[in-house]
Structures are given as structure tokens and as C-alpha cells.
Design a protein around this nucleic acid. Structure first.
Length: 467
RNA sequence: GUCCCCAUCGUCUAGAGGCCUAGGACACCUCCCUUUCACGGAGGCGACCGGGGUUCGAAUCCCCGUGGGGACGCCA
């Protein structure tokens, strides 16, 4: 039987880091085994589910380029099916109607907690015959086995065993005629012939209940793999407090989708000492069984390093659309300055993110109006005027077709020779003339990106300031 | 409280009884390169949670502590 995995988020927020990694692992496992990756939206809770969240999840998946082969399926559209199965279970004596009010259940829980017991439904209506009381909510509860143990061999955690005495008769059908999570998941996973259930380990406790439902349904249970959590840098659950929590926030912050995927893949999984993986490598090397058992912390520094790696090694052409997006986001018209690919070549060794790159590129897209005082004081001094005049002459003499970093570099060196100074004495004043600051990419790129006429104009502007 | 899970440098991890004087990566520090800032190169700092076993031998296996996380809903 070919592998079928599913990513099943509930649309109560955006796609976050933990969800993204779960989706990635599901996708990777299906891809490697030539299987099918299914997207299912778990929206049985209509109070908290929103259309915006569905869209946010879809957007996140698309940005990460984790395409599903089937779906998205929506649980909200399958209520008839859940009702059918729930009533079948009642008819088969594997589930029963119960009539407690919420207040009664709360009281029962409190009583048990007070006695240091694990709160469990007492099974009152499981055996009781007779007429159902009037005016009371009616739910369907699953008749969980009363003894024995439930065990499974988890692909990441190993063997896990739990006694049925720890479990109680969970509600599978609510009084408002909606299914509950633990029930809908099993019906879906059975109907969709899911072979590998890969999900966060906050679901470990649900698994034995679900396994019992599989058994009651007479269905073969899938293989389970419970992924450890991803925590924030402080070890606590990853949350808004840690900054970027939505996957889309990483796009806004200037990270490449593949860099995020690469970083996230290595959180909880490894292949020897390898740090960098192309999509193809991830697909061929990833094994769900190689995933770590313990939780990990999200490290922004390392993500930044991975991101810069791809900024440095991906082709400028493939990176260009990403930078253009970022420029627009910063209110800069990409058409009003140098080609994005040229900007990338000049800046990629100097920034960690595309957002930083866009910010530093601004100087070539807008008129130069602001000068750093310290830079001016330091570099527009001594023989700076002579240097600027000399380099202006050299740059002015360049034919338009020669306006390239290499020939600009020669021009600057020639200017330095002409006035009998080191290259630095020309380059630094020129840098301040070009950017208003003493920090920029290599001087020939800095000049090149300005374009010949704008470069000459900025030198004149600097000369005027000197006078 | 009860149950479940986890435990190697600050962080991500390698490690499936001898290959471990515990390897790699990020971060940090030093030096080199250098017309700025970076990139790059060479070094450095830095860990097997504790205690008992098992074994000729344990980071690796077992037990007990301790610490961390999760679950105990008519949420998912």
C-alpha cells in the first residue's frame, strides 16, 4: 500500500513554525516514498474556525511551496458522515447516549481533582437503562475498553503503552450535533486511507483513545509518528512574545522560503553533520524514523546564517523577484534604480536578510540627501577635494559601455595614482559622496550601482559641500 | 494531583557498548586578509543532569532521583 500522509491544521490562526515543520515532514515522507500528501482543514469547532485562518494556512503552504496532492478537505463538509458513523457505533453497542449537564460534569471533575485523582467520566449512562430524562443535553460517548492496555510503536518515540484505566468514555458527538476532534480525526483518517499519522507530540495522549476507536470501527490503524515541540529561545512554548510566529512573518522579515524550510528541517532531524540541504536532498535523505525524540529551541541566529548562505549561493536572477518584493514592501519602486540582480551581487555578503538588503539598497533608488556627519568630517578632509576631482575626471571619461565594476575599479586606481595617494584616500571620500556614509559595498560596486550620470552628480554634490 | 514524554557544548546536533582525549554547525573570542562594512581563511572557548547498577569496558543498556515539557474539555 502506498504511503498517504496528511497535514491537518485547525483554522484558528495562521500557519506557525511548529505547523510548518509538521507539514514539511509529512510532505517529505510522502514525496520520498512516492506517496500522497493530503491537506485537511479541521474546522469542527465553528466558534473558533475562521475563513481568514484557512486562507492564512493556504498562503503559508504556498509560500513554502509545500503542495498537497489531495484536498483541502474540510471537516465541516463531512458532518453527515460523522453522524452516520457515530450512530452506527451506538447501534453496535460501542457507544451510548449520555445526559449529564456541563455543570454536573464540572462538579464531577472538581471532586476527582480534590481527591488527587485524574478526572474521568464515571460511565453513569454506559449501563443505565430506562427513559432518558427530558430537557437535558444529549451526547454520544464512546464505550472505551475498561481494562487492558493500548500500545503502539511510535516512529519517533518508540513503544508507548498506556492502561485503559487511564482513559474514560470520551464524547464523540456533542449535544449541538457536532462531532468532536478525536472522533472526526479517526473517521477521516480511515476514510482517507491515511497510512502515516505525523503530528505534534501534544497528541500523544489522544492516540490511545483514537486507537480504541479504530478498533471499534474494525479499521486497521496507521503508523503514528509524534514530533517533539519547538520552543522559543527561552525554552518556553513558541509564542508571539518571541517575535515571528506566523510563517508569513518570515517572508516579511526577509527570509527565503527554502532557508526557513532548511532550518526547520534540521530542528529535530539530522543527517550526520550535514547542515545544508536542497529540496531534492531533503526528499531523498529524510526518514521520519530518524527524527529526534526531544524538543528543540528556535534559534534566530542560525536561521539567519542559513538564510545568508542561500543569499550568497543562489543565482542573483532567482533571488531578484524576492528582493523586488521586499523593495516594494519598503515603499521603493524597483524600477527607479539599478537591476535587482546587481544589487544582490553587491550586498549579499553583507546582510542576513532580504529586508536588510532592501533597506541598504534604498540609497541607489532615491536621491542622496542625508550625510553622516562623522563620515563627512573624517573623509571630506585633507586632499578629499583633489581626490574627488581626479576620480570624477576618470569616471567621466569612461564610455557608457565600460560602466562596469572592473573598469570603475581601474578608474579609481588611476585617480589615486594621479594624485600620488593610496586607493583608500580616493575610495573613502568617494564612498561618502556616493552614499553619505562610510559604510557600503566594495567601492566599485557602490559607484556602479549609482549609474554613471548619478555617480557624477553625487560627486558634484559632494564637491559643492566641500567648498 | 494523576498519567505520558524528554534529558550530549549557550543553541541545533553526531553518537545505536570499545572507533570518544566526545565530532560538526550557529553564536562568542583571537589572529590573518582588507580602501569601509562584510565575506573568506586559521585557531580558541565550550557538553555526556545526579546517583546506583549490568559489563573486562557505558554518553550509549537497566533502576531511582532531579529537572523540563505535554495531556487530563460537549478545543483541536
Amino acid at each position: 500500500m502506498s504511503c498517504r500522509t496528511r497535514f491537518a491544521p485547525s483554522p484558528t490562526g495562521f500557519l506557525h513554525i511548529g505547523g510548518a515543520r509538521t507539514a514539511l515532514y509529512c510532505w517529505l515522507e510522502a514525496r520520498r516514498r512516492g506517496g500522497t500528501f493530503i491537506l485537511r482543514i479541521e474546522d469542527t469547532d465553528r466558534e473558533r474556525s475562521t475563513q481568514e485562518s484557512v486562507q492564512a494556512i493556504l498562503d503559508g503552504m504556498q509560500w513554502l511551496d509545500l503542495a498537497h496532492d489531495e484536498g483541502p478537505y474540510y471537516q465541516a463538509q463531512r458532518f453527515d458522515r460523522y453522524a452516520e458513523v457515530a450512530h452506527e457505533l451506538v447501534r453496535a453497542g460501542k457507544a451510548y447516549f449520555a445526559y449529564e449537564t456541563r455543570e454536573e460534569l464540572d462538579a464531577m471533575r472538581e471532586r476527582q481533582m480534590a481527591q488527587n485523582l485524574k478526572p474521568r467520566y464515571d460511565g453513569h449512562w454506559r449501563t443505565r437503562q430506562g427513559d432518558p430524562p427530558p430537557d437535558r443535553p444529549r451526547v454520544i460517548r464512546f464505550a472505551n475498553p475498561v481494562d487492558g492496555v493500548v500500545a503502539w510503536n511510535d516512529m519517533v518515540k518508540g513503544r508507548i503503552e498506556i492502561s485503559n484505566q487511564e482513559l474514560d468514555d470520551l464524547i464523540i458527538w456533542r449535544s449541538d450535533e457536532h462531532p468532536t476532534y478525536n472522533f472526526a480525526v479517526v473517521v477521516d483518517d480511515v476514510d482517507m486511507r491515511i497510512t502515516d499519522v505525523i503530528r505534534g507530540d501534544d497528541h500523544v495522549n489522544n492516540t490511545p483513545r483514537q486507537i480504541n476507536i479504530y478498533a471499534a470501527l474494525g479499521a486497521t490503524q496507521p503508523v503514528f509518528a509524534h514530533l517533539p515541540m519547538i520552543h522559543g529561545p527561552d525554552g518556553a512554548k513558541l509564542s508571539k512574545r518571541h517575535g515571528a510566529i506566523s510563517v508569513m512573518q518570515y517572508r516579511d522579515d526577509g527570509y527565503l522560503p527554502h532557508a526557513l524550510l532548511n532550518y526547520i528541517a534540521r530542528l529535530g532531524w539530522s543527517h550526520g553533520d550535514q547542515e545544508l540541504f536542497s529540496r531534492e536532498q531533503m526528499i531523498s535523505l529524510f526518514r521520519i524514523g530518524d527524527v529526534n525524540r526531544s524538543a528543540s529551541r528556535f534559534d534566530f541566529d542560525k536561521l539567519a546564517w542559513v538564510n545568508q548562505h542561500y543569499l550568497k549561493t543562489d543565482s542573483p536572477e532567482s533571488l531578484a523577484p524576492h528582493l523586488e518584493w521586499q523593495l516594494r514592501a519598503a515603499g521603493i519602486d524597483p524600477a527607479s534604480g539599478p537591476a535587482a540582480a546587481d544589487v544582490i551581487v553587491a550586498l549579499r555578503d553583507r546582510v542576513k536578510t532580504l529586508k536588510e538588503m532592501a533597506a541598504r539598497a534604498r540609497v541607489w533608488f532615491e536621491p542622496l540627501t542625508v550625510y553622516d556627519e562623522q563620515a563627512v568630517a573624517k573623509h571630506f578632509a585633507g586632499r578629499a577635494g583633489e581626490a574627488l576631482h581626479a576620480v570624477r575626471a576618470q569616471l567621466h571619461a569612461l564610455a557608457a559601455g565600460d560602466w562596469q565594476p572592473a573598469s570603475i575599479d581601474s578608474a579609481i586606481k588611476a585617480a589615486a595614482t594621479a594624485i600620488g595617494e593610496g586607493v583608500g584616500k580616493v575610495a573613502q571620500p568617494l564612498r561618502v559622496a556616493m552614499t553619505g556614509t562610510a559604510v557600503s559595498p566594495s567601492i566599485e560596486h557602490t559607484v556602479y550601482l549609482a549609474g554613471q550620470s548619478e555617480a557624477l552628480r553625487r560627486i558634484d554634490q559632494a564637491l559643492a559641500k566641500l567648498a
